[in-house]
């Protein structure tokens, strides 16, 4: 999918509003908006790269961009987000209130952490618990290297203690019916 690069607000410098800490070795492109609401802050670590036209808006929390992370052009980061070290966020991606694991690669045009809409072109998941996980990339074909942890609480109630003997019975079922994935 070819996305045209966004037109930046300014061609010469970027905009900083509120409590924003930028390491001297971080690189911010022109036209970037870094806005921290009151009681929130933004921390950009050393070596991080923020692409042209990105908007990072901290709200009720801290946005942390760890060292050597790369945010593509036009990326929108909202709320409380931690982008792990060496992560690579594709162009025009939106990240809302979710953490990005270190060294993760997010394809361009992704939507992370938004549970307000259902994505109909998702590949069906076998386990019923997967429906409760809100963060799923819009692009299902891209092989995501690791599952994205969501700080939002899972809707289905979790048991405090595991069911005794479930692993035993599940293993027996795998042997009996030659399944690869446990139910």
């Amino acid at each position: 999918m070819q996305l045209s690069p966004p037109q930046p607000v300014s061609t010469s410098h970027f905009c900083v509003i509120g409590d924003v800490t930028i390491h001297p070795h971080a690189k911010i492109a022109s036209g970037v908006i870094l806005q921290a609401a009151p009681q929130s802050k933004i921390v950009i670590a050393s070596g991080a790269c923020i692409g042209i036209g990105a908007v990072i808006q901290a709200f009720e929390g801290t946005i942390t961009v760890d060292s050597n992370a790369v945010l593509g052009a036009g990326v929108l980061v909202l709320g409380q987000v931690t982008i792990g070290m060496n992560a690579c966020i594709g162009d025009c991606t939106t990240i809302i209130n979710t953490d990005i694991v270190a060294q993760q690669v997010i394809p361009e045009g992704s939507l992370m952490g938004d549970s307000s809409r259902s994505t109909l072109d998702e590949s069906p998941n076998g386990s019923p618990l997967n429906d409760a996980l809100p963060s799923n990339p819009v692009n299902p074909d891209w092989p995501s290297p690791s599952p994205i942890p969501s700080p939002a609480p899972v809707s289905s109630p979790q048991r405090q203690s595991p069911v005794i003997g479930r692993a035993y019975v599940t293993q027996m079922l795998q042997v009996l019916f030659a399944r690869n994935s446990s139910p």
Partner: peptide, 8 residues
Amino acid sequence: GELNSVMV
């Protein structure tokens, strides 16, 4: 309800 244990 609450499942506690299984065995076969």
